[in-house]
C-alpha cells in the first residue's frame, strides 16, 4: 500500500487531481473495520491527518469553524464547543469508545456518509455549513445538502472536506442529543437524534430536529419541525412532534434493529427532547 502524506492542502488537492483513485483518509476508523480483503484492494491512500488547514477549532465572525481532521477527543475537550454547542460535545463523547475518539475525525464521519454517523444529526440541527476544497478552489455546501443519498455526498471527484462551520445559535437555544445504540459504548446507532430550538414569548420560535439511522441519509425532521413551530411547549406539542417524526422517516429492518423499533424509539426520543424545550 502506498500512503501519500502531503504537507499542505494545495499539495493534497494536486495529488488527488493527478490520481483520482487515491482514497483520502484521516483516522481510518471506518476503513479498518472493512476487513483485510477490502484493505488489500485499497492500494493508494492520501493521508489528510497532517494538513494544517484541516486542523484546529477557531472562532469566526459567524460562529465557530472546526477543521475536518479534528478528532472527537479534541472536540470533547474543546471548551469553546462545550460552551456554544453542547450537543456536539455529547455526540463526540458517545462515538465508539475512547480509542475510536482518539483517531476518528469529524470530517471522516461526514465523508464516510453512514446514515448512522453520530455527529451528523447534530450538524444538521446546528445548521452547519461544510467547506470543500478542489482544483477550482473552495466552495461551501449547507449541511442539509451534503448527504445526497445512501453513502453519497456532495463531494465532487478531486474535492477534500476542509472545515465545518457552525453558526452562533440564537440566544436561549436548547440543544439535545440522544444516541440509541446497541450497548453503552463501542456501539453503532440504531437511532440517533439531535435538537436545537428556542422559545420566545411562550411559543417555539425556532426548531431544528434531525435524526440518523432512520433513512438512507441523516435527515432533518421537517414535518415534525413544522408541526410544532409556533406552538407552546408542553406535552401535547411534544407528542405531536414525536408522532409526526415517526411518520416522516423510512427506517428499515437490518442486523442492528427493526423498522418498528426505530420508529418507536424515534417517537419517544423526539417527544422527550421537545418536552425539554422551555
Amino acid at each position: 500500500m502506498i500512503a501519500l502524506s502531503p504537507r499542505s492542502l494545495d499539495e493534497a488537492v494536486r495529488h488527488l487531481a493527478d490520481d483520482p483513485a487515491l482514497v483520502p483518509v484521516a483516522g481510518c476508523t471506518d476503513l479498518m473495520v472493512r476487513g483485510p480483503e477490502a484493505l488489500h484492494r485499497m492500494d493508494r491512500v492520501l493521508d489528510l491527518l497532517g494538513l494544517p488547514e484541516l486542523r484546529g477549532i477557531c472562532a469566526v465572525s459567524e460562529g465557530l469553524e472546526i477543521g475536518a481532521a479534528t478528532t472527537f477527543t479534541e472536540i470533547r475537550h474543546s471548551a469553546a464547543i462545550r460552551a456554544a454547542f453542547p450537543a456536539l460535545t455529547a455526540a463526540a463523547e458517545q462515538v465508539g469508545g475512547w480509542q475510536i475518539q482518539n483517531r476518528g475525525t469529524l470530517g471522516g464521519n461526514l465523508a464516510n456518509a453512514s446514515p448512522a454517523g453520530d455527529s451528523l444529526p447534530v450538524l444538521l440541527a446546528l445548521d452547519a455549513t461544510v467547506i470543500l476544497a478542489g482544483p477550482a478552489g473552495q466552495r461551501e455546501v449547507r449541511m442539509d445538502g451534503f448527504h445526497t443519498g445512501y453513502r453519497k455526498t456532495a463531494l465532487a471527484p478531486g474535492e477534500i472536506l476542509v472545515r465545518i462551520r457552525l453558526p452562533h445559535p440564537p440566544a436561549g437555544t436548547v440543544q439535545a442529543f440522544r444516541k440509541v445504540g446497541t450497548r453503552e459504548a463501542q456501539a453503532i446507532s440504531k437511532v440517533v437524534v439531535a435538537l436545537a430550538g428556542h422559545v420566545e414569548g411562550g411559543r417555539i420560535a425556532g426548531i431544528r430536529l434531525a435524526a440518523g439511522s432512520v433513512a438512507a441519509t441523516p435527515v432533518r425532521l421537517r414535518a415534525a419541525e413544522a408541526a410544532i413551530l409556533g406552538s407552546s411547549p408542553g406535552l401535547v406539542t411534544a407528542e405531536r412532534a414525536g408522532r409526526t417524526a415517526a411518520r416522516e422517516v423510512q427506517p428499515i429492518d437490518d442486523v442492528r434493529s427493526t423498522a418498528d423499533y426505530r420508529r418507536f424509539a424515534l417517537e419517544r426520543v423526539v417527544r422527550r427532547m421537545v418536552l425539554g424545550l422551555t
Binding site: 473495520v33 476487513g35 450497548r183 459504548a185 453503532i188 442486523v255 442492528r256
Partner: peptide, 22 residues
C-alpha cells in the same frame, strides 16, 4: 440473526457483547 442459513451478525461490530460500561 440468520438469513438463508447465513449468520448476519458475523463481526464484532454486529455481534454485540458487553463492554465494561455494560
Amino acid at each position: 440473526k440468520l438469513e438463508d442459513g447465513r449468520y448476519l451478525n458475523d463481526r464484532l461490530a454486529t455481534y454485540v457483547i458487553p463492554t465494561i460500561l455494560d
